[in-house]
Design a protein around this nucleic acid. Structure first.
Lengths: 126, 126
DNA sequence: GCCTATAGTGCACAAAAGGATACTGTCATG
DNA sequence: CATGACAGTATCCTTTTGTGCACTATAGGC
């Protein structure tokens, strides 16, 4: 995959923000990380906790998180496959970010998480 | 544009995280917001503070931030155009998120913000 | 014997995001 | 007269992201 999203070191002050956001962007990564805050989960456990994510997407996102060193992937060589995902120390260090995101979301979900009808009205009004 | 990224209200606990991240995803939004924490800025001031962003991208991202109610856009009907961008109260409420991102990035930029050579080595090692 | 669960992979396809470049119109400066 | 600043648009292009479906292999339950 070899994504090189943050190759620069020119870094005006906002650059570190860019680095951080670069690791948790994508529709699902932050949500996956958030669920992993609660402890180790298996592939399908994560899948069930995030309705709407497809297998392929979940695989992709987990692989990227693994490559970026945020999650650990532990494969048990069993016959019904078993793979456990957990936060690496680096991933756990994301906790403040994740919690800030959650807090903000909880406070403001009324504005954006509404059923489509309202969202549409909002769009039209703009 | 009418993006409906978060139309669901099914909301397992991670959903509010998804709402929040949905507003600041994209390569530049969080960086823009971060710079606006420091106060009102004009279009080209932002552009200069974020090397690498193109005019088009900056315009897009600012428009989306405006639509999502995070930034205020004030146009002065002057002859050399003047447009000021500032955080709305809602945008300012993102401050903890932005600061958490910045803090994390500062702490870990050594891992990801390195010049390409090292990044490449890292990728190969994986 | 068939269905389910496990953790994925592979392929085709569509949509969205992002990038490069050129262009707008007006005014001030040189 | 040419240039640049201002705040964008317009157009084209590539890359990334996301969806849907089928498929792998093995074991246990019905």
């Amino acid at each position: 995959m070899a994504k090189v999203r943050h190759s620069r070191f020119d870094c005006s002050p906002g650059c570190s923000v860019e680095v951080a956001i670069g690791l948790i962007d994508g529709k699902w990564k932050s949500v996956i990380l958030f669920h992993l805050l609660g402890g180790t989960l298996r592939f399908n456990e994560i899948r069930r906790q995030i309705p709407g994510v497809t297998q392929r997407m979940l695989t992709n996102q987990l692989r990227e998180l693994e490559q970026d060193g945020l999650v650990d992937r532990k494969v048990y060589a069993q016959v019904p496959p078993k793979v456990e995902y957990s936060l690496s120390p680096l991933g756990r260090s994301m906790e403040p970010v994740l919690l800030a995101l959650k807090t903000w979301g909880d406070a403001n979900i009324g504005l954006y998480g509404k059923p489509d009808a309202l969202r549409q009205a909002d769009v039209k009004a703009a």
